[in-house]
Amino acid sequence: MTSNPALAVNTRPWTDPDAKPFISIRNITKRFGDFTAVNDVSLDIYRSELFCLLGGSGCGKSTLLRMLSGFETPTSGKILIDGQDMAGVPADRRPTNMMFQSYALFPHMSVEKNVAYGLLREGKSKAEAAERAAEMLKLVKLESFARRKPHQLSGGQRQRVALARALAKQPKVLLLDEPLGALDKKLREETQFELINIQETLGVTFIVVTHDQDEAMTLATRIGVMTEGVITQVGEPREIYETPKSRFVADFIGSVNLFEGRVGPSAPDLMRVETEDLGPVSVPPVPGLTQGQTVWLAMRPERVWLTREPKEGAVNTVPGIVRDMGYVGHMSSYLVRLANGRQVRVTQANESRRDNPISWDESVHLSFEPADFRVLTQ
Protein backbone atom coordinates (compact mmCIF):
# COMPACT_ATOMS: atom_id res chain seq x y z
CA MET A 1 0.00 0.00 0.00
CA THR A 2 1.42 3.39 -1.00
CA SER A 3 1.07 6.29 1.41
CA ASN A 4 -0.14 9.68 0.22
CA PRO A 5 2.91 12.00 0.05
CA ALA A 6 0.66 14.97 0.75
CA LEU A 7 -0.18 13.48 4.13
CA ALA A 8 3.41 12.63 5.05
CA VAL A 9 4.70 14.22 8.24
CA ASN A 10 7.94 16.17 7.91
CA THR A 11 10.17 14.68 10.59
CA ARG A 12 12.85 17.31 9.86
CA PRO A 13 10.89 20.58 9.83
CA TRP A 14 14.05 22.66 10.25
CA THR A 15 14.86 21.82 6.63
CA ASP A 16 11.64 23.52 5.46
CA PRO A 17 12.04 27.31 5.17
CA ASP A 18 8.25 27.70 5.53
CA ALA A 19 7.95 25.61 8.72
CA LYS A 20 6.87 27.57 11.78
CA PRO A 21 9.06 27.07 14.87
CA PHE A 22 7.34 25.99 18.09
CA ILE A 23 9.87 27.88 20.25
CA SER A 24 11.52 31.08 19.05
CA ILE A 25 14.40 32.54 21.05
CA ARG A 26 15.29 35.99 19.75
CA ASN A 27 18.46 37.86 20.75
CA ILE A 28 18.33 36.61 24.34
CA THR A 29 20.97 38.02 26.69
CA LYS A 30 21.38 37.37 30.41
CA ARG A 31 23.83 39.32 32.55
CA PHE A 32 24.69 38.81 36.21
CA GLY A 33 26.38 42.08 37.11
CA ASP A 34 29.39 42.43 34.83
CA PHE A 35 29.24 38.78 33.74
CA THR A 36 27.34 37.87 30.56
CA ALA A 37 26.09 34.28 30.90
CA VAL A 38 24.10 34.22 27.64
CA ASN A 39 25.03 36.61 24.85
CA ASP A 40 22.55 37.55 22.10
CA VAL A 41 21.35 34.00 21.39
CA SER A 42 18.74 33.34 18.69
CA LEU A 43 17.39 29.83 18.15
CA ASP A 44 14.36 28.08 16.66
CA ILE A 45 13.11 24.74 18.02
CA TYR A 46 10.29 22.80 16.37
CA ARG A 47 7.35 20.88 17.79
CA SER A 48 8.17 17.34 19.02
CA GLU A 49 11.93 17.85 18.72
CA LEU A 50 14.37 16.32 21.15
CA PHE A 51 16.82 19.21 21.10
CA CYS A 52 20.09 19.14 23.05
CA LEU A 53 22.02 22.15 24.31
CA LEU A 54 25.57 20.87 24.55
CA GLY A 55 28.53 22.60 26.13
CA GLY A 56 31.08 22.62 28.92
CA SER A 57 30.60 23.94 32.44
CA GLY A 58 29.76 27.63 32.57
CA CYS A 59 28.92 27.98 28.86
CA GLY A 60 25.42 29.33 29.58
CA LYS A 61 23.29 26.32 28.63
CA SER A 62 21.57 25.91 32.01
CA THR A 63 20.95 29.66 32.24
CA LEU A 64 19.25 29.54 28.84
CA LEU A 65 17.12 26.62 30.03
CA ARG A 66 16.13 28.52 33.17
CA MET A 67 15.05 31.51 31.08
CA LEU A 68 12.83 29.20 29.02
CA SER A 69 11.28 27.84 32.21
CA GLY A 70 10.72 31.29 33.76
CA PHE A 71 13.12 30.78 36.68
CA GLU A 72 15.40 33.49 35.24
CA THR A 73 14.38 36.73 33.54
CA PRO A 74 16.28 37.75 30.40
CA THR A 75 18.23 41.00 30.50
CA SER A 76 17.09 41.56 26.92
CA GLY A 77 15.51 39.63 24.08
CA LYS A 78 12.33 37.64 23.59
CA ILE A 79 11.10 34.05 24.02
CA LEU A 80 7.96 32.81 22.28
CA ILE A 81 6.42 29.37 22.91
CA ASP A 82 3.67 28.25 20.55
CA GLY A 83 3.30 31.85 19.39
CA GLN A 84 2.92 33.31 22.90
CA ASP A 85 5.42 35.85 24.22
CA MET A 86 6.73 34.61 27.60
CA ALA A 87 7.66 38.09 28.86
CA GLY A 88 6.13 38.50 32.32
CA VAL A 89 4.66 34.96 32.37
CA PRO A 90 5.67 33.27 35.65
CA ALA A 91 7.14 29.78 35.71
CA ASP A 92 3.94 28.13 36.98
CA ARG A 93 1.89 29.64 34.13
CA ARG A 94 4.19 28.57 31.31
CA PRO A 95 3.49 25.51 29.11
CA THR A 96 6.78 24.05 30.35
CA ASN A 97 7.97 21.78 33.12
CA MET A 98 11.50 21.30 34.40
CA MET A 99 13.19 18.06 35.38
CA PHE A 100 16.19 18.83 37.57
CA GLN A 101 19.45 16.88 37.73
CA SER A 102 18.91 16.20 41.46
CA TYR A 103 15.40 14.78 40.70
CA ALA A 104 14.11 16.63 43.83
CA LEU A 105 11.76 13.83 44.91
CA PHE A 106 9.92 14.14 48.21
CA PRO A 107 11.50 11.47 50.47
CA HIS A 108 8.44 11.07 52.73
CA MET A 109 6.04 10.45 49.83
CA SER A 110 5.49 7.24 47.88
CA VAL A 111 6.37 7.08 44.21
CA GLU A 112 2.74 7.50 43.11
CA LYS A 113 2.23 10.48 45.42
CA ASN A 114 5.41 12.11 44.10
CA VAL A 115 4.05 11.80 40.56
CA ALA A 116 0.56 13.02 41.52
CA TYR A 117 1.78 15.95 43.67
CA GLY A 118 1.82 18.62 40.96
CA LEU A 119 -1.62 17.60 39.70
CA LEU A 120 -3.15 17.92 43.17
CA ARG A 121 -1.54 21.35 43.54
CA GLU A 122 -3.27 22.35 40.30
CA GLY A 123 -6.64 21.40 41.81
CA LYS A 124 -7.16 18.02 40.17
CA SER A 125 -9.27 15.55 42.12
CA LYS A 126 -7.53 12.70 43.93
CA ALA A 127 -9.07 10.18 41.56
CA GLU A 128 -7.97 12.12 38.47
CA ALA A 129 -4.47 12.65 39.85
CA ALA A 130 -4.15 8.97 40.79
CA GLU A 131 -5.28 7.87 37.33
CA ARG A 132 -2.80 10.17 35.58
CA ALA A 133 0.01 9.09 37.93
CA ALA A 134 -0.72 5.44 37.14
CA GLU A 135 -0.57 6.21 33.40
CA MET A 136 2.82 7.89 33.77
CA LEU A 137 4.25 5.11 35.94
CA LYS A 138 3.16 2.58 33.33
CA LEU A 139 4.86 4.68 30.65
CA VAL A 140 8.16 4.61 32.55
CA LYS A 141 7.67 0.93 33.53
CA LEU A 142 7.44 1.57 37.27
CA GLU A 143 3.80 0.66 37.98
CA SER A 144 4.88 -2.11 40.36
CA PHE A 145 6.93 0.41 42.41
CA ALA A 146 4.05 2.83 43.04
CA ARG A 147 3.98 2.37 46.83
CA ARG A 148 7.72 2.47 47.42
CA LYS A 149 9.57 5.48 48.80
CA PRO A 150 12.40 7.13 46.82
CA HIS A 151 15.12 5.68 49.08
CA GLN A 152 13.94 2.19 48.12
CA LEU A 153 14.71 2.81 44.43
CA SER A 154 17.86 2.67 42.37
CA GLY A 155 19.28 5.80 40.74
CA GLY A 156 17.78 4.88 37.38
CA GLN A 157 14.37 4.25 38.94
CA ARG A 158 14.43 7.62 40.74
CA GLN A 159 15.30 9.26 37.43
CA ARG A 160 12.22 7.68 35.83
CA VAL A 161 9.99 8.78 38.72
CA ALA A 162 11.18 12.36 38.23
CA LEU A 163 10.46 12.04 34.51
CA ALA A 164 6.96 10.67 35.18
CA ARG A 165 6.24 13.54 37.58
CA ALA A 166 7.46 16.13 35.07
CA LEU A 167 5.30 14.63 32.30
CA ALA A 168 2.19 14.14 34.45
CA LYS A 169 1.13 17.77 34.00
CA GLN A 170 1.20 17.33 30.21
CA PRO A 171 3.55 20.22 29.44
CA LYS A 172 4.03 21.34 25.85
CA VAL A 173 7.76 21.53 26.54
CA LEU A 174 9.82 19.43 28.95
CA LEU A 175 13.12 20.97 30.03
CA LEU A 176 15.73 18.50 31.29
CA ASP A 177 18.88 19.75 33.02
CA GLU A 178 21.59 17.03 32.90
CA PRO A 179 18.87 14.37 33.40
CA LEU A 180 21.23 11.39 33.27
CA GLY A 181 24.26 12.93 34.96
CA ALA A 182 23.83 11.00 38.24
CA LEU A 183 23.72 7.58 36.55
CA ASP A 184 26.66 5.26 35.89
CA LYS A 185 27.83 4.79 32.31
CA LYS A 186 25.98 1.54 31.54
CA LEU A 187 22.71 2.68 33.08
CA ARG A 188 23.02 6.08 31.39
CA GLU A 189 23.34 4.42 27.98
CA GLU A 190 20.30 2.21 28.63
CA THR A 191 18.22 5.13 29.89
CA GLN A 192 19.02 7.26 26.84
CA PHE A 193 17.01 4.94 24.62
CA GLU A 194 14.15 4.79 27.15
CA LEU A 195 14.05 8.58 27.09
CA ILE A 196 13.91 8.61 23.28
CA ASN A 197 11.06 6.07 23.26
CA ILE A 198 9.05 8.04 25.83
CA GLN A 199 9.55 11.30 23.93
CA GLU A 200 8.48 9.71 20.65
CA THR A 201 5.45 8.08 22.31
CA LEU A 202 4.15 11.34 23.78
CA GLY A 203 5.33 13.74 21.08
CA VAL A 204 6.27 16.33 23.72
CA THR A 205 9.04 18.77 22.80
CA PHE A 206 12.12 17.93 24.90
CA ILE A 207 15.02 20.34 25.45
CA VAL A 208 17.94 18.61 27.14
CA VAL A 209 20.99 20.33 28.63
CA THR A 210 24.09 18.14 28.78
CA HIS A 211 27.88 18.34 28.78
CA ASP A 212 28.16 14.75 27.50
CA GLN A 213 28.87 14.64 23.76
CA ASP A 214 27.92 10.96 23.38
CA GLU A 215 24.64 11.58 25.17
CA ALA A 216 23.76 14.50 22.89
CA MET A 217 24.70 12.55 19.77
CA THR A 218 22.48 9.62 20.86
CA LEU A 219 19.45 11.59 22.04
CA ALA A 220 19.10 14.61 19.81
CA THR A 221 17.20 15.38 16.66
CA ARG A 222 19.45 18.47 16.61
CA ILE A 223 22.24 19.83 18.78
CA GLY A 224 23.12 23.41 19.67
CA VAL A 225 26.79 23.62 20.69
CA MET A 226 27.40 26.40 23.25
CA THR A 227 30.54 28.13 24.46
CA GLU A 228 31.03 31.39 26.37
CA GLY A 229 27.35 32.28 26.24
CA VAL A 230 26.82 31.85 22.49
CA ILE A 231 25.64 29.02 20.25
CA THR A 232 28.43 28.33 17.79
CA GLN A 233 26.63 25.77 15.62
CA VAL A 234 23.22 24.13 15.35
CA GLY A 235 22.69 20.94 13.36
CA GLU A 236 21.74 17.30 13.32
CA PRO A 237 24.23 15.01 15.12
CA ARG A 238 25.76 13.72 11.89
CA GLU A 239 26.12 17.27 10.54
CA ILE A 240 27.79 18.50 13.74
CA TYR A 241 30.24 15.60 13.71
CA GLU A 242 31.03 15.38 10.00
CA THR A 243 30.90 19.06 9.03
CA PRO A 244 31.91 21.20 12.03
CA LYS A 245 32.09 24.92 11.26
CA SER A 246 34.93 25.77 13.64
CA ARG A 247 37.92 24.26 15.41
CA PHE A 248 36.02 24.51 18.69
CA VAL A 249 33.13 22.37 17.46
CA ALA A 250 35.45 19.89 15.72
CA ASP A 251 37.50 19.47 18.89
CA PHE A 252 34.55 19.45 21.31
CA ILE A 253 32.54 16.80 19.48
CA GLY A 254 34.43 13.52 19.51
CA SER A 255 38.15 13.22 18.78
CA VAL A 256 39.88 15.08 15.95
CA ASN A 257 43.32 15.77 14.47
CA LEU A 258 43.81 19.44 13.55
CA PHE A 259 46.58 20.58 11.21
CA GLU A 260 47.35 24.24 10.55
CA GLY A 261 48.31 25.24 7.03
CA ARG A 262 48.21 27.84 4.29
CA VAL A 263 46.20 27.67 1.09
CA GLY A 264 48.33 26.89 -1.95
CA PRO A 265 47.54 26.64 -5.66
CA SER A 266 44.20 25.18 -6.73
CA ALA A 267 43.38 22.84 -9.59
CA PRO A 268 39.85 22.18 -10.90
CA ASP A 269 39.32 19.21 -8.56
CA LEU A 270 41.84 19.70 -5.74
CA MET A 271 43.31 22.48 -3.63
CA ARG A 272 46.75 22.26 -2.05
CA VAL A 273 47.32 23.22 1.57
CA GLU A 274 50.90 23.54 2.84
CA THR A 275 51.19 22.16 6.39
CA GLU A 276 54.15 21.83 8.73
CA ASP A 277 52.99 18.43 10.03
CA LEU A 278 51.92 16.62 6.85
CA GLY A 279 53.69 18.60 4.15
CA PRO A 280 51.59 19.53 1.11
CA VAL A 281 48.06 18.10 1.38
CA SER A 282 45.47 17.86 -1.38
CA VAL A 283 41.87 18.62 -0.37
CA PRO A 284 38.69 19.46 -2.30
CA PRO A 285 38.62 23.16 -3.33
CA VAL A 286 36.73 25.51 -1.00
CA PRO A 287 35.07 28.60 -2.54
CA GLY A 288 36.11 31.97 -1.15
CA LEU A 289 39.61 31.08 0.05
CA THR A 290 42.64 33.01 -1.15
CA GLN A 291 46.16 31.73 -1.72
CA GLY A 292 48.28 32.14 1.41
CA GLN A 293 45.25 32.23 3.73
CA THR A 294 45.63 30.36 7.05
CA VAL A 295 43.28 27.40 7.45
CA TRP A 296 43.01 24.33 9.65
CA LEU A 297 42.43 20.80 8.39
CA ALA A 298 40.23 18.62 10.62
CA MET A 299 40.54 14.85 10.27
CA ARG A 300 38.61 12.32 12.38
CA PRO A 301 40.81 9.45 13.69
CA GLU A 302 38.63 6.77 12.11
CA ARG A 303 39.16 8.35 8.66
CA VAL A 304 42.94 7.82 8.72
CA TRP A 305 44.34 4.74 6.96
CA LEU A 306 47.05 3.02 9.03
CA THR A 307 49.22 0.56 7.07
CA ARG A 308 52.72 -0.90 7.15
CA GLU A 309 53.33 0.02 3.52
CA PRO A 310 52.14 3.16 1.71
CA LYS A 311 48.51 2.74 0.66
CA GLU A 312 48.31 2.14 -3.08
CA GLY A 313 46.94 5.15 -4.94
CA ALA A 314 46.90 7.40 -1.85
CA VAL A 315 47.03 11.12 -2.66
CA ASN A 316 48.13 12.12 0.84
CA THR A 317 50.50 9.90 2.83
CA VAL A 318 53.10 10.42 5.56
CA PRO A 319 55.34 8.00 7.53
CA GLY A 320 55.34 7.65 11.30
CA ILE A 321 56.02 5.38 14.27
CA VAL A 322 53.43 3.91 16.62
CA ARG A 323 54.20 5.30 20.07
CA ASP A 324 51.10 4.21 21.97
CA MET A 325 48.00 2.11 21.46
CA GLY A 326 44.94 1.03 23.37
CA TYR A 327 42.54 -1.85 22.88
CA VAL A 328 38.87 -1.10 23.61
CA GLY A 329 37.14 -4.22 22.32
CA HIS A 330 35.55 -3.30 19.01
CA MET A 331 38.36 -0.95 18.07
CA SER A 332 41.97 0.00 18.78
CA SER A 333 43.30 3.52 19.20
CA TYR A 334 46.81 4.52 18.11
CA LEU A 335 49.08 7.51 18.66
CA VAL A 336 51.47 7.78 15.73
CA ARG A 337 54.46 10.14 15.95
CA LEU A 338 55.46 11.95 12.77
CA ALA A 339 59.02 13.01 11.88
CA ASN A 340 58.56 16.50 13.39
CA GLY A 341 57.27 15.05 16.70
CA ARG A 342 53.59 15.72 16.07
CA GLN A 343 51.31 12.90 17.22
CA VAL A 344 48.31 11.81 15.18
CA ARG A 345 45.43 9.83 16.65
CA VAL A 346 44.12 6.90 14.60
CA THR A 347 41.31 4.46 15.37
CA GLN A 348 40.69 1.18 13.55
CA ALA A 349 37.98 -1.45 13.89
CA ASN A 350 39.41 -4.67 15.28
CA GLU A 351 37.26 -6.79 12.95
CA SER A 352 39.73 -6.22 10.12
CA ARG A 353 42.83 -6.66 12.28
CA ARG A 354 42.52 -10.14 13.80
CA ASP A 355 45.74 -11.43 12.22
CA ASN A 356 49.13 -9.78 12.76
CA PRO A 357 47.85 -6.44 14.09
CA ILE A 358 50.04 -3.34 14.08
CA SER A 359 51.65 -2.81 17.47
CA TRP A 360 53.98 -0.51 19.46
CA ASP A 361 57.11 0.99 17.87
CA GLU A 362 56.26 -0.19 14.35
CA SER A 363 57.04 2.01 11.35
CA VAL A 364 53.78 2.76 9.58
CA HIS A 365 52.25 4.99 6.94
CA LEU A 366 49.25 7.26 7.44
CA SER A 367 47.08 7.95 4.39
CA PHE A 368 44.34 10.57 4.09
CA GLU A 369 41.62 10.80 1.45
CA PRO A 370 41.17 14.42 0.25
CA ALA A 371 37.40 14.36 0.85
CA ASP A 372 37.84 13.25 4.48
CA PHE A 373 39.47 16.55 5.46
CA ARG A 374 37.26 19.35 6.73
CA VAL A 375 38.78 22.75 5.89
CA LEU A 376 38.13 25.31 8.68
CA THR A 377 38.78 29.04 8.66
CA GLN A 378 38.07 29.77 12.34
Results as ranks from 00 to 15, higher is better:
Ala104Ser: 13
Ser110Arg: 15
Asn39Pro: 02
Ala87Arg: 12
Ala91Asn: 02
Ile79Ser: 08
Leu119Ile: 11
Asp82Val: 05
Thr73Lys: 15
Leu119Cys: 10
Glu72Pro: 09
Leu68Asn: 10
Val111Gly: 05
Leu68Gly: 05
Leu64Gly: 09
Gln84His: 08
Val89Phe: 03
Phe32Trp: 13
Leu54Asp: 10
Gly83Thr: 07
Phe100Asp: 06
Cys52Ala: 15
Arg93Tyr: 02
Ser110Tyr: 00
Leu54Thr: 14
Val38Arg: 12
Ala104Phe: 11
Ser57Pro: 00
Ile45Arg: 09
Asp40Lys: 11
Phe100Tyr: 14
Gly58Ala: 01
Lys113His: 14
Glu112Ser: 15
Gly70Thr: 08
Asn114Tyr: 05
Cys59Tyr: 01
Leu119Thr: 07
Val38Asn: 08
Lys113Leu: 06
Asp92Arg: 06
Gly70Lys: 01
Gly118Ser: 12
Ser69Gln: 11
Ala127Asn: 04
Glu72Thr: 11
Ile81Ala: 05
Thr73Phe: 01
Ala91Arg: 02
Glu49Pro: 04
Ser62Trp: 06
Lys126Gly: 13
Ser102Trp: 00
His108Glu: 01
Asp44Ser: 14
Asp85Pro: 01
Lys124Cys: 00
Arg66Gln: 14
Ser48Gln: 15
Phe71Tyr: 13
Ala104Arg: 07
Met86Val: 08
Arg93Ile: 00
Asn114Gly: 09
Leu64Ser: 07
Glu112Pro: 00
Ala116Gly: 06
Met99Cys: 05
Asp85Trp: 07
Gly58Ile: 01
Leu64Ala: 12
Val115Asn: 13
Arg94Asn: 00
Lys113Asp: 15
Phe106Asp: 02
Ser42Glu: 09
Gly123Cys: 04
Gly60Ile: 05
